[in-house]
Simulated scan of single mutants.
Amino acid sequence: MGISKGDTVHWNTSQGRTTGKAVEKRESAFTFEGQKFNASKDEPYWIVESSKTGAKAAHKESSLDAR
């Protein structure tokens, strides 16, 4: 997919489409804000930061759009 740290990315939320930046890539299981994620090299996750609210969240790389 080609997302790099600092890239502007877009993702869907229950409130609609959100824009933010890619903060950190995770390629192994991790816990973020009390939630467990099973990241791997084949299915990495990104910690992303919303441009609008500054809130951070974890999303599968495949759910992010870097266009």
Score class of each variant (00 low, 15 high):
Lys25Gly: 00
Ala39Val: 05
His59Phe: 04
Asp65Asn: 04
Arg67Phe: 15
Thr53Arg: 02
Thr18Lys: 11
Phe37Pro: 06
Ala55Gln: 03
Arg67Leu: 06
Ser4Phe: 08
Thr13Ser: 15
Gln15Tyr: 12
Ala29Arg: 14
Ala66Met: 07
Ile47Asp: 04
Asn12Gly: 09
Ser4Pro: 00
Thr8Gly: 06
Ser62Tyr: 00
Gly54Phe: 01
Thr13Gly: 12
Val23Tyr: 05
Thr31Ile: 14
Glu49Met: 10
His10Arg: 11
Asp7Trp: 05
Phe37Ile: 03
Lys36Ala: 15
Lys41Ala: 13
Asp65Leu: 07
Asn12Met: 05
Ser28Ala: 15
Ile47Pro: 06
Trp46Gln: 02
Lys60Asp: 07
Gly2Glu: 14
Phe37Trp: 05
Leu64His: 04
Thr31Ala: 10
Thr13His: 09
Phe30Cys: 03
Val48Gln: 03
Arg17Gln: 14
Lys41Gln: 12
Ala57Ser: 11
Glu27Ser: 13
Thr19Met: 06
Lys21Pro: 03
Glu61Gln: 14
Glu27Gly: 01
Arg67Ile: 05
Val23Phe: 02
His10Cys: 05
Glu27Val: 15
Ser62Trp: 00
Lys5Ile: 14
Lys25His: 00
Ser40Gln: 09
Thr8Trp: 08
Trp46Ile: 00
Lys25Ala: 05
Asp42Asn: 09
Asn38Gln: 10
Glu49Trp: 03
Ala58Tyr: 08
Gly2Ala: 14
Ser4Trp: 06
Gly6Leu: 13
Gly2Pro: 04
Lys56Gln: 10
Ala58Met: 06
Gln35Met: 14
Val23Arg: 13
Gln15Thr: 09
Gly20Trp: 01
Lys21Leu: 03
Ser14Ala: 13
Gln35Asp: 08
Trp46Pro: 01
His10Tyr: 15
Val23His: 05
Ala57Asn: 00
Arg17Cys: 00
Lys56Ser: 03
Ile47Cys: 08
His59Met: 11
Glu43Ser: 13
Ser62Asn: 05
Ala22Asn: 08
His59Arg: 03
Val48Thr: 05
Ser40Trp: 04
Ser40His: 04
Thr13Trp: 05
Ala29Gly: 09
